[in-house]
Design a protein around this nucleic acid. Structure first.
Lengths: 224, 224
DNA sequence: TAGATTGTTAATCGATTAACAATC
DNA sequence: TAGATTGTTAATCGATTAACAATC
């Protein structure tokens, strides 16, 4: 078992393993080899064995990996069993979509509450959790020892809200505002989910592909 | 100027450059050195110069990079000037959030229409674009030569919708369903935006940090 | 001109792949 | 036992960083 710093590349693959293993477990698959897993995920068998070996020995020679227990290992490495106290800040379409589409509970997060400035939302519930006023945010975080804030407010409000959260001593922020929160050296862990970046990247790859097609002697309709 | 294959790492940084340069332009900054840009983005000056030099010589010795024209170069590399015909499939909270929060037009995409199965939405407009029935999807794609589909349907519908899109000859899909579309070898470009992965990764980093803090001799309140 | 900063080449570092002994 | 597949070491490949001549 390797020790020491785990590379970011490995960490970013862990969620993909988790999802894949969930899918396999659901299908009733109970063991899988690195070779087969690699095929299904578009990775090499070598890489998969290297990745897991960073954290322990989860496989068995001649047999492969037991899906269920490997899934548990990966979930545990990711901290899915820690029940991090989580809040949602911003209950527009995006905030609502996050609350409704991501099963926080079954993924080990405890989603406690949501916050918004819209008076018509305050006091209501979204995806089963209560919506409070932004003016209650600071007290709530301190009282309930919130670990993670998911922010889905407008671009304009993003930095202000982020600064508030940082002041209250929040440990981590998942940022869906598509803008920089300005917390680089604040000590707060920030995970940016800029979907604009995804559109840009897709556009790049599409552009490259179209350029290549223009150059190439028109893909023959004969080749399968 | 380097040529040949551009690495994925470089491509994934391009959107970040674009956003940063937009921000700088808005602030009225009209030139910036690789050193300063690196400081602001958390990259090395070397890396920034390497990245841009993959595509051309956009800077000037002794001066730095002109913000505005560099912004244009990056936008052009990303294909932002191509006006890709785009549709949105799935007009739930998430679909609506995407249509409303990402300015497709000013980012060079032409968002033509949205599709949903919900009869109460069909015929309405979302973020200014018309919502059609899913039964019109195939015809629309062929007629309007759609390049990109953004899909924000439920997990259950994801694979079916993806297969339909692939059959119609769509070139690229931006996938917000949090599930695998099963198009690995279909020739369709797929950009997955799994925000569950972001939550998982954030949880990992937070867990690591908490573990480290437990071990360390409690961060002295003396050190600044 | 002197100072600053690029573009690029070379050096270093890290990540992926290949190979194989260990063993289920 | 024979076959399969792991965990790990070594080899390769690629990406980042450092250095510096070119030049604005």
């Amino acid at each position: 078992m390797k020790k020491g710093r785990i590379s970011n590349n490995v960490i970013r693959r862990l969620p993909k393993y988790l999802r894949k293993l969930d899918e396999l477990a659901e299908k009733g698959v109970d063991r899988i080899s690195s070779g087969e897993l690699g095929m299904q995920m578009g990775l090499t068998a070598s890489q998969i064995r290297q990745d897991f070996s960073c954290f322990g020995e989860f496989g068995q020679q001649g047999y492969g990996y037991p899906v269920k227990s490997l899934r548990q290992e990966v979930a545990s490495i990711l901290g899915m069993n820690r029940g991090y106290a989580t809040i949602l800040v911003g209950v527009g379409n995006l905030g609502r979509a996050l609350a409704e589409n991501f099963d926080f509970r079954s993924n080990g997060f405890t989603l406690l509450a949501a916050f918004d400035i819209n008076p018509s939302l305050i006091g209501k519930r979204v995806a089963g959790i209560p919506v409070y006023s932004m003016s209650d945010l600071k007290d709530f975080i301190k009282l309930c020892k919130v670990d993670i804030a998911v922010i889905a407010v407008s671009k304009d409000a993003a930095r202000h809200v982020a600064a508030q959260l940082s002041d209250c001593g929040i440990r981590a922020i998942c940022n869906f505002t598509n803008t920089d929160l300005g917390l680089r050296d604040s000590g707060v862990l920030v995970e940016d989910v800029h979907f604009s970046d995804s559109f840009y990247a897709l556009s790049y790859y599409l552009t490259e592909r179209l350029k290549r097609e223009e150059l190439e002697p028109a893909p023959s309709s004969l080749e399968k």
